[in-house]
């Protein structure tokens, strides 16, 4: 798998896949996409990288241990759920904020729902990478 062509192409592909994964994550609320799909795409980017360059390099590129990523994702998702309690709403009620909203413009919507989706993204990304990298190193 470590042909020069694959390795060179991978560098470009990984960057594209990661960008695309974040794009999918952010558009998810209105168009097809979301944290789950984004996480899968991001994970396949790193899986590709690991296959071309070896898992050790993939881990270096990732910087953080995949299990840590997954766990912090779970924590972030939980935080998004708990956040609504501060406003007196039920657990996991979405809290919204529209930055720069005017009479006519809706502004930039930010919400705990997005935070939750980021958590989902990280859990999926981290979990898959933890399994794939461990499997690859085991073989």
């Amino acid at each position: 798998m470590s042909s020069l062509i694959v390795r060179a192409a991978t560098r470009l592909m990984v960057a594209l896949l990661l960008m695309f994964s974040i794009y999918m994550l952010l558009r998810g609320h209105n168009e097809p996409g979301g944290g789950f799909i984004g996480g899968l795409i991001g994970a396949s980017g790193f899986v590709l990288y690991a296959m071309a360059h070896g898992s050790a390099e993939a881990r270096t590129a990732l910087r953080i241990d995949p299990l840590d990523i997954a766990m912090s994702g779970l924590g972030i998702a939980l935080f998004a759920g708990v956040a609504s309690l501060f406003d007196g709403d039920a657990f996991f009620t979405g809290q919204w904020m529209f930055l720069g909203a005017t009479e006519t413009e809706k502004g930039l919507p930010l919400s705990t729902v997005l935070i939750f989706d980021v958590g989902v993204y990280l859990v999926v990304l981290g979990s898959i990478l933890a399994m794939v990298l461990a499997l690859e190193e085991e073989v």
Binding site: G28, H29, N30, G33, G35, A77, G94, V113, G119
Partner: peptide, 23 residues
């Protein structure tokens, strides 16, 4: 829920607790 993608809105808002369990 301010979202047009019903599937995703269900996942992250209406049924967020289920999703949390799944992840």
């Amino acid at each position: 829920a301010y979202g047009r993608n019903v599937v995703n809105v269900i996942l992250v808002d209406f049924r967020a607790l289920d999703t949390f369990g799944e992840i």
